[in-house]
């Protein structure tokens, strides 16, 4: 299996560990990722709230390379994935719009290439999930985790490709296959506030607190995410929160690929565990998942 890989800006900066663990896990499961050469930013939310044309042109400038090379695109960032897929769907529906965008990007995008999020890659019945189960080397059954999808991996339905927008299952299944104790909880698809953490901190803190508190109340040791902005909001702001008893939370926020990597027995430094702000190593040592010296 070979895919065009669109890491996106976050995976080259705040979410390097997502990039590291994605590459390590895919390599282990025989999925080949070819990074799109000289990819550019997808424009994210600032583009679609400023100009519709910009929100289509920036993603499609990247997809054109994949299409010319007959590859489907995989993006680990929820926002990049959503923008790439929405742009592709929009120009599939409207031939005039496609022409207009092709003039702007000086390309010849037809809309044939498919856009996947990383979660789809491990849950779409191509055998990766079974391979993951077979190759599992570390026992993670003592680790209680909740899967947090946030907004863009659940909504809109036709973009995210989920059966139930209120209760998506793809990450739960993957973590299950990796041998973790996946708990049910209520805040799977609640919003973390996205960039409000910069533009209106108070609102963002309230939303993050609700998510962290609910996960803790459900009995989780940690949260698994698949979006760099969700991760950084839950991880960076956690030190500012306290529970009802005045205690600080200590819930590591893993990328789901890091947990897959742990299950596959990959070395911890290949998964970027040290880069997480809430250090997950004490928890993992406590549960005898990694050694004392790691």
């Amino acid at each position: 299996m070979k895919y065009a890989y669109f890491p996106g800006c976050s995976l080259h900066s705040t979410a390097k560990e997502f990039d590291l663990s994605t590459r390590a896990v895919c390599k282990n499961l025989d999925i080949e990722l070819v990074e799109i050469p000289d990819w550019i930013c997808c424009g994210s939310t600032p583009a679609h709230t400023t100009s519709e044309l910009l929100s289509l042109a920036l993603p499609l400038a990247n997809c054109t390379w994949a299409e010319n090379n007959h590859l489907d695109v995989v993006a680990p960032c929820a926002s990049c994935f959503s923008r790439l897929k929405i742009a592709t769907l929009e120009v599939q529906k409207d031939a005039d719009l496609r022409k207009k965008i092709n003039t702007i990007i000086e390309g010849n995008f037809e809309g044939n290439t498919k856009i996947f999020h990383l979660l789809h890659l491990f849950s779409n019945g191509n055998g990766s999930a079974e391979k993951l189960k077979e190759k599992t080397k570390r026992d993670l059954s003592t680790l209680k985790v909740v899967a947090y999808y946030g907004c863009l991996l659940a909504r809109p339905k036709e973009v995210a490709g989920v059966v139930d927008v209120e209760n998506p299952q793809s990450m739960d299944r993957i973590l299950n296959k990796a041998g973790l104790d996946v708990l049910d909880w209520s805040h799977k698809t609640e919003c973390c506030g996205a960039s409000l953490s910069i533009t209106d901190k108070k609102v963002s803190l309230r939303l993050v607190h609700e998510i962290i508190q609910t996960a803790a109340d459900a009995g989780a040791d940690c949260i698994a995410v698949a979006c760099p902005l969700c991760q950084s909001n839950l991880d960076l702001q956690q030190s500012e929160l306290k529970n009802n008893h005045g205690h600080k939370y200590h819930l590591p926020i893993f990328y789901f690929t890091q947990l897959m990597g742990l299950a596959l027995g990959l070395e911890t430094n290949k998964l970027g565990l040290k880069r997480l702000i809430v250090d997950p190593r004490p928890l993992l040592k406590n549960k005898n998942i990694i050694g004392i010296e790691e």
């Binding site: 939310t45 907004c151 909504r155 809109p156 927008v165 919003c191 996205a194 409000l196 209106d200």
Partner: peptide, 11 residues
């Protein structure tokens, strides 16, 4: 301006 484009309403 506060809308975070979470799409809950649209869904």
């Amino acid at each position: 301006w506060l809308c975070a484009s979470c799409q809950t309403c649209s869904t």
